[in-house]
Design a binder for these strands. Structure first.
Lengths: 341, 341
DNA sequence: CTGAAAGCGCTTACAG
DNA sequence: CTGAAAGCGCTTACAG
């Protein structure tokens, strides 16, 4: 490895000057700068970022810790990368896939996060008590609902209102037996609870009765879970004529189940999801969904984090990001192109 | 920040001993160990990984640099994370989305990779010449085809054979006008060329003529590109009765175009993809595809990298991973459930 | 504008 | 089994 010392020797200057040139500091004589540059190139010097980080006290690196197995998150990650770049930081993604073990690595003693200036974290498997455990050395911003008991900065979407809007939209179609898919078997985050709450509120506002049989539980938020839940719902005595899934992935699974059993969507059963992932814009029929403002989420998360990096030690803050209902073919009788010609 | 010095002072030992305890070295008296542990907990010590990495000369971190906007890669990334964990390394993902600018950050002087022991890299936008530029400080393993001119370790799948198998499968259905979707407008990696070659070989083996009009070019490998290419193919004088897309994402886009225009799949047009992403197992119809052995790719990439980390300085090696044709509904007349009941 | 030197927090031969 | 000390490669007041 070529060090600044090697370069300094070759250029006949001190490491101080080499460092100045490498970091583009002013106050270096043009002649000196040229000589150092020459030596830099000749030797093929590249800085050791570990050493630089140690000396500077910060690495310029931010960890984005999230479950990459759900498209919503990797779509979101692109926005976070861009917003971080814009602010001079580099994002490195640490994929947990919601596994508590991997998430725990974040709060454990020999925490990989120690090389990061800050962390943007979307906890799935970990509850608040465990999160609280973490020392406050590295600032953390949570994405999504606050795990019970944790007190950290976070950015969230109003899940209750969004779920209510999605359900109301299904009600507006004249459907009466509207199922909800996504209540986890064992609840950890509050996301699902909030969406169930929004679902119930919409029902209530429309004067529909709430039928517990129409709330399908899941173990995970993947396609397979949506497909399985839909199968169970269809086998009930009084199957649903619409279904609101707590994410698009499950909605796509439900869609698959419906179509493969010969149901027409939306004629027989209307389907709505949550997340606005790209898949839902290309499925047949295309998927009605709630679109959280991913760009805004990313931007707010970075802003919260940078506030902490700048030394703010105030109480935890919560930023709220917008969302929008996106009606598409899966809830629109008129245009179901798969059957329209 | 609590340092080992603080802990040493509190426990009444030297930092040497603290370090020994933190790293679980043997030869620490039980009594001493207990006392140090006590101090560690009391102060809430967490190691500074930057400093440790600098002192040890390695960080235990490996960068996985790839385009996360394509599901194939984030599915692959999970396998890489697991294979790395198994070998005691931590993967951090650096998403490039195929943008040459971001890929270039990897070969630039102030390379973020300097904190990594090694790099697993899937170049999309960068050609071989630029890759060659990078100094050999940090070992690199390439995923996929070798960019022209680069000489680095890599793991690849036999694209020619796999594409030939997929095309032959379509021919076996009795189709005569088989289109190929995925030849990039401006070619950089060899992947697409190889798949086109396999496609042509299958045609030739079956005695079909090669019609250049049936090879649709794309600018990217996303759904939108597949959808657009399909639209153009359908507008031709003699539209295809089957289409082989160079990845599943484009195949899903093509599928969407076909269904929305009222074509039946596979009755009117059969569709095959490449990658075996999860979406294709839940689309309607489900998608026939080539499934590269992702687990094997990940495992081989890690093995190649670790060989270099262990000091092997031999010539670049190429590992070959397996693949398998997965026939599904999009090429199977019998079972197209969307229309079967 | 540039040098000599301390320091970032850790690891690890070298002694004992 | 443990201490004193050098060193990892960089940055940066302090002088000049």
């Amino acid at each position: 490895m070529v060090t600044q010392r090697d370069v300094a020797k070759l250029a006949g200057v001190s490491v101080r000057t080499v460092s100045n040139v490498v970091n583009d500091y002013t106050y270096v004589a043009e002649e000196t700068r040229a000589r150092v540059r020459q030596a830099l190139d000749e030797l093929g010097y590249r800085p050791n970022l570990l050493a630089r980080g140690l000396a500077r006290g910060r690495s310029g690196l931010i960890a984005l810790v999230l479950p990459l197995d759900v498209p919503y998150f990797y779509e979101l990650s692109e926005y976070v990368v861009v917003e971080a770049e814009r602010r001079g930081y580099t994002i490195l993604i640490d994929r947990t896939d919601g596994q508590a073990t991997r998430e725990r690595a974040l709060v454990s003693r020999t925490d990989r996060s120690a090389i990061f200036d800050g962390i943007i974290f979307s906890p799935i498997g970990l509850g608040g008590p465990e999160l609280r455990y973490r020392t406050a050395d590295t600032p953390v911003v949570l994405l999504g609902e606050k795990p019970v008991g944790a007190s950290l900065d976070r950015v969230q979407v109003d899940d209750v209102a969004a779920a209510e809007a999605a359900t109301s939209h299904l009600i507006g179609l004249g459907r009466h037996r509207i199922a909800a898919v996504g209540q986890p078997v064992k609840a950890r985050s509050q996301t699902a609870q909030h969406r169930t709450l929004g679902y119930q509120r919409a029902l209530q506002a429309a004067g529909h009765e709430f039928d517990p049989d129409l709330v399908a539980t899941v173990t995970d938020f993947h396609r397979a879970d949506g497909a399985l839940a839909m199968t169970r719902l269809l086998e009930a005595r009084r199957p649903p004529d619409a279904v609101f899934c707590y994410n698009d992935l499950m909605a796509l699974g439900a869609l698959r189940t419906l179509l493969s059993k010969g149901y027409r969507v939306p004629e027989d059963v209307a389907v709505a999801g949550f997340d606005d992932i790209e898949d839902g814009r290309y499925s047949t029929p295309t998927l009605t969904t709630v679109a959280p403002d991913k760009q805004q989420i990313a931007s707010q998360a970075m802003d919260l984090l940078i506030r902490r990096l700048d030394g703010d030690a105030g109480p935890p803050k919560t930023a709220r990001a917008g969302w929008q209902l996106m009606p598409r073919e899966s809830t629109s009788i008129r245009s179901n192109p798969g059957h329209s010609l």
